[in-house]
Amino acid sequence: MRIFAGLVAILCLALPIAAQQKLAFDITSVRENKSGIGPGSKEPNTNVPLGPGNVYSPTGGQLNLRNIEFLQIISFAWKLTLPQRDAFRDMAPPWAREARFDIQARTDKSDVTKDELRLMMRSLLEERFGLVVHYETRTASVYSLQLLKPDTFGPHFRKHTGTCSTDFKGKTTDDADAEGYPQVCGGLLMLAGSNSTHFRIGARDMPITVFATSLTGWGDLGRPVVNDTGITGNIDFILDFIPPYAQAAAGADVEGQGFQEALHKQLGVKLEPQKQPVPVLVLDHIDHLSEN
């Protein structure tokens, strides 16, 4: 389902990570995983969340990925949105669209940040796959995210204040504060829905750009979402809604708010169709894996 792709892979409609210094892992092992998915395969697993947020329990400089899609690895390294990832898939050779890999990597920098791991992954992809990419700005159909009323937030949407931890260790997605917001900051978390047909997604201390671009996957919108709310800082939110596929299947028999209605009533925002310039990661060159 595209909503899960949006949570895992999506990502922020931003230019490359600001820190552009050349960083690299000290030790790496990269192998194609041909076990596939489903019965008899190795379950996909990672010790570092690959989504666009900052949720990250320090691993002592270790990054371990098992049976992860190559395109998801690209998305992690460049914080790709779902539309950016789809555009990159269209440029990629057939093997890159289907391949899955195991990667064990280590850096001697024990206090490495998640964004530094992204830069190290870029170096690994350049070295092992000869990957060359660049950004281009292209005009595309988008949704403009706007407040329904200027400077007015919905009941489950607010500017973030204070401090909180991005360390997920020892916590679950059910851990919430007194107002129902996640205790862990910096990541998009799937919470317990109000009933079995609903999704409930929340975050604290989330960049507004990451929130905006994630809406594409949650609402199965088919186009990027651009932040035009006027909000520049980080936000907290909780959104409980019936996903589009469930609403279509159940029709009038399902109770609760659909995606667009939930945006209006819970968050006080709306989506307006427009054409705007957006950044696209363009593939210049890629080779199949150079074996260890």
Rank of each mutant, 00 (worst) to 15 (best):
F157D: 02
G162W: 00
E98K: 11
Q104I: 14
G258T: 14
M121H: 07
A87V: 12
S57G: 14
K265L: 14
E272N: 11
L71N: 05
Q104V: 14
A248E: 14
R85D: 07
F153V: 09
T107M: 04
T107F: 05
A250Q: 15
V30Y: 01
Q260G: 02
A178S: 15
P150C: 05
I201D: 02
E43P: 13
P155Q: 10
T107C: 07
G51I: 01
T107A: 05
G193I: 15
A18Y: 02
N67F: 05
N227A: 01
D177N: 13
R158E: 04
A178G: 15
G51C: 07
T113D: 11
C185G: 11
M120V: 13
L281D: 00
S29G: 05
F237K: 03
E43D: 14
R100L: 11
T172H: 07
R97V: 14
T81Y: 03
R31F: 09
H160D: 06
K275F: 13
L63W: 08
G38D: 04
R85Q: 13
G170A: 13
T216F: 03
L239D: 06
A9Q: 02
V225R: 00
D236R: 02
V282K: 00
A18N: 04
S35W: 07
A246R: 10
F241A: 13
E116Q: 15
T163I: 12
G180C: 10
G268W: 03
G186N: 11
P277I: 14
